[in-house]
Design a protein around this nucleic acid. Structure first.
Length: 565
RNA sequence: UGGGGUAUAGCCAAGUUGGUAAGGCAGCGGAUUUUGAUUCCGUCAUUCGUAGGUUCAAGUCCUGCUACCCCAGCCA
């Protein structure tokens, strides 16, 4: 029941300007073929939440109108691409619920066709071989406010261009020696139309095509053709490509495609405090500032997956934020809300202590041990129960105790009786401190009558707190951390003590310091300032014998940490 | 006057033949609670970047202005 409601929410379909465009085309019968969209990542990095946003848009349009959705690797630059990334991208898409099935294509597979089309342009006098150097081309291009000027090679005769372009392909020229340019308009106010380079010479092996080619097509030329070849109808991309649209259309028109695909743009999505730029992410990974593309602190799909986000929660989030023509910066609390909403009903709710404070129960027999049966979910008995051990030595969360409670503090303090969740009420008898005045231990008494489930109702504590049995807790604590990073050290820094390494706060500080280094000359500081560390708590750990297994880690609402007034 | 794009609450965002500002997040107040969670109830834009204009009626139409974003890769 609950799940169905959630699913309905996930499926819910906010109206968007893109849908209106598609519907209009459908009504007017613009295409004799079915709707087809595509997601065209360059395999040079891992998918992140921003990629998921883009995928979701195209995927949903295709799905909604009974069309096809293509995954096409936009792999026209041999310098940057690698199979590692194509495999990862496919995996991540499947995990996130955007399975491209058998509709996986590679732009580089069309190199021959792309070359043939280019030759057609050359023969039509619409493209020419240019001998200018990269620097000269830049100078000839003009500036934003000044028009460019024609290349001296612009008026080469067609036969010469055909010859030269053929020889470019044959490998007669060195890397960078010549380029093929579209002949459009050097005076256009749109820089993209000032005779853009459409082919370059690059004597480099391609991860997929090997050494078959030494000329490679540029994005602006290749993309519309790749779309057209695949029968794409709506080529949806982010807003910065808006200015490229005239070139997209120029290419398709010159080559006289019937029912050409149309490019339409949507605004980029940013998240507060989150880096969603492949370039920066790559830098963090390559520089060793994080543990890899799947570091739980990263907004990559893999990182989020390890952090505990479910595909459902990500889709729900994406559905919730909508689409617009303008760039947006969504508050990360919306994302967190989506996980909470999903995990609230599906994740067993367990007790965990991140920052332990020892509690000794003086009137509980030293050699006694008991098993308490605790519900796995506060509202859903179907999720069963588990047994937890209880003894005279426990750990509670440091933040759950205050020696001098602030006004409004409801949890453990001198004179405050609290309930240990699923166990007994306890009261404080003594605070033990070390030489520096740091609280190291609490001495307490428990009331056997208050045992959970006994029906005791005479007193009602203001708060219920989490605890763990110290016998399991130390190792549990270690495992918690180890599991979080899947048995690897998240921080390679062995100089840190074990305790520092499990403390999320020290982790946070360290991350920030490293981040500053990573910043270097990065242009936008605030983008880099924080990888969101957030508050971790374990929300789904199953006990199986003595072992704890953590499946999901959920960011808690801040109010839990802060307490409320 | 280089060109293009966007402006609705702290954030995201509906609003499409002009008819009297959806929803979500965050926040705030309260009730319930063996997680200060969850759940529940209430509250949160006299006004849509701004100044004018048209109209019985404007977020929607017109004009001027302002702010922000994108473009000078042989990257995508």
């Amino acid at each position: 029941m609950d799940r169905n409601e959630t699913n309905n929410k996930i499926e819910k379909d906010p109206s968007s300007f893109l849908q209106r465009i598609v519907e209009k085309d459908l009504n007017e019968g613009v295409y004799s073929r079915g709707i087809c969209t595509r997601f065209p990542p360059e395999p040079n990095g891992y998918l992140h939440i921003g990629s998921a946003y883009a995928i979701n848009i195209s995927y949903n349009i295709a799905k909604k109108y009974g069309g096809e959705f293509n995954l096409r690797f936009d792999d026209t630059n041999p310098l940057k691409e690698d199979k590692e990334y194509v495999d990862a991208i496919i995996d991540d898409m499947k995990w996130a619920g955007f399975d491209p099935k058998d509709r996986i294509f590679y732009g580089s597979d069309y190199f021959q066709q792309l070359y043939d089309y280019a030759m057609e342009l050359v023969k039509k006098g619409k493209a020419y071989v240019c001998d200018l150097s990269a620097e000269e081309i830049r100078q000839y291009r003009g500036t934003l406010t000044e028009p460019g000027k024609n290349s001296p090679y612009r008026d080469r005769i067609i036969d010469e261009n055909v010859d030269l372009f053929t020889r470019m392909k044959e490998g007669e020229f060195k890397t960078g020696e010549k380029v093929l340019r579209a002949k459009i308009d050097m005076k256009s106010p749109n820089m993209n139309l000032r005779d853009p380079v459409i082919y370059r010479i690059l004597h480099e092996a391609h991860y997929r095509q090997g050494n078959q080619w030494c000329i490679y097509p540029m994005y602006d030329y290749a993309h519309p053709l790749q779309d057209a070849i695949e029968g794409v109808t709506h080529s949806l991309c982010s807003i910065e490509f808006k200015d490229h649209r005239p070139l997209y259309n120029w290419t398709l028109e010159e080559l006289e495609f019937n029912e050409p695909p149309k490019q339409r743009e949507f605004g980029r999505m940013n998240l507060t405090g989150v880096i969603t730029s492949k370039r920066y992410l790559r830098e963090l990974v390559a520089g060793g500032y994080v543990d890899g593309w799947d570091d739980p602190r990263l907004p990559t799909l893999r990182g989020m997956r390890r952090r505990g986000y479910t595909p459902e929660s990500i889709k729900h989030f994406l559905g919730e934020i909508g689409i617009s023509k303008d760039e947006s910066t969504v508050d990360v609390s919306m994302l967190e809300h989506s996980v909470r909403e999903d995990l609230r009903d599906t994740a067993p709710s367990m007790m965990a202590v991140m920052n332990p404070l020892k509690v000794i129960i003086e009137n509980y027999p030293n050699d006694q041990k008991e098993l308490l049966e605790v519900q796995n979910h506060p509202k859903n008995p179907d999720m069963g129960t588990r047994n937890v051990t209880f003894s005279n030595t426990l750990y509670i969360e440091k933040d759950d105790f205050m020696e001098k409670p602030e006004k409004g503090f409801k949890r453990f303090a001198p004179g405050h009786e609290v309930r240990l969740r699923g166990a007994y009420f306890i009261q404080l008898t003594e605070i033990i401190k070390d030489d520096s005045g740091e609280i190291t231990e609490l001495r307490c008494t428990y009331d056997p009558e208050t045992k959970s489930g006994s029906g005791f109702t005479e007193r009602k504590p203001k708060a219920t707190i989490h605890w763990v049995d110290a016998n399991n807790a130390i190792s549990a604590e270690a495992r918690l951390y180890d599991k979080l990073i899947e048995e690897e050290a998240l921080l390679k820094d062995k100089t840190l003590s074990w305790e520092e390494r499990i403390n999320p706060d020290s982790l946070k500080v360290l991350t920030e310091i490293k981040m500053e280094k990573a910043l270097g000359e990065a242009k936008s500081e605030d983008k880099f300032q924080f990888i969101r560390q957030g508050f971790f708590t374990v929300d789904n750990k199953h006990t199986s014998g003595e072992k704890l297994i953590f499946n999901r880690i959920v960011p808690l609402k801040d109010s839990w940490k802060k307490g409320k007034k």
